[in-house]
Design a protein around this nucleic acid. Structure first.
Lengths: 113, 113
DNA sequence: TCATGATATAAGTATTTAATTATATAGTTA
DNA sequence: TAACTATATAATTAAATACTTATATCATGA
């Protein structure tokens, strides 16, 4: 059992951000592959501002990072933090619903991003 | 990397409960050994009702369990849940402050529980 | 049985949070 | 440059949350 060894102070804000169904699903999606916002909107069936606001929190906390490519902004997990192994293990402990991948593929086809 | 394989629905409420400094410290204490409420009050320097209310939430979610022994109620981690391995790994990923164990010992001496 | 100590519950409150709607910004293409 | 698409931000609001203080419960021991 490998330890990531982060402090309570470091762990709490990370756990807070993962402890929301919408954000947890977002990071689970990003654990599969990078995604642009429109895909998340489709998959999660939620308003675009809601998704953007969740992404801002995740970005501020450095859990995710963005890459702009033309019109689209692709999000990905930020692997450059001390707590990334902690986040990664949590994500790997969670079984994404079967439908998540299906929905991600569908979203990718609907949007041309 | 062994997977605990819990669902998003199962993970979110567990993460919500762990995503609080006080509760996370409580479960970190219980990961060391069982404790009674008065020890937690001492270690965390918080009011007894505040601790009791956190414990109720943790108990309702089956993250912890209680054993009454006379006047004292000892709490411990509840190992009988599907999500226990998930909780355990999170706790093992977090370095408890050096002072925590010291404080736990001191509390144990101050109270006769 | 009465006083005491340990813990739980209730009621109230201030803060945080996650949504919504409306609007702004920024890149793309005609 | 104008229209369009993708994304972000702002303002607002309802709900959830983590305390506080006051009180109740429950076991123990005089």
């Amino acid at each position: 059992m490998e330890k990531t060894g982060i402090s309570v102070e470091e762990a709490v804000p990370v756990l807070k951000l993962l402890a929301d169904r919408t954000r947890l699903t977002i990071v689970l999606m990003l654990h599969q592959r990078q995604c642009c916002v429109c895909e998340m909107v489709d998959v999660l069936g939620m308003s675009q501002p809601a998704i953007s606001q969740h992404l801002r929190k995740l970005r501020d906390a450095k859990i995710v990072a963005e890459d702009r490519r033309g019109q689209w902004i692709y999000y990905r997990l930020n692997r450059e933090t001390t707590f990334f192994p902690f986040v990664e293990y949590i994500l790997e402990s969670i079984q994404a619903e079967e439908t998540l991948i299906t929905k991600m593929d569908t979203a990718k086809n609907i949007n041309q991003c």
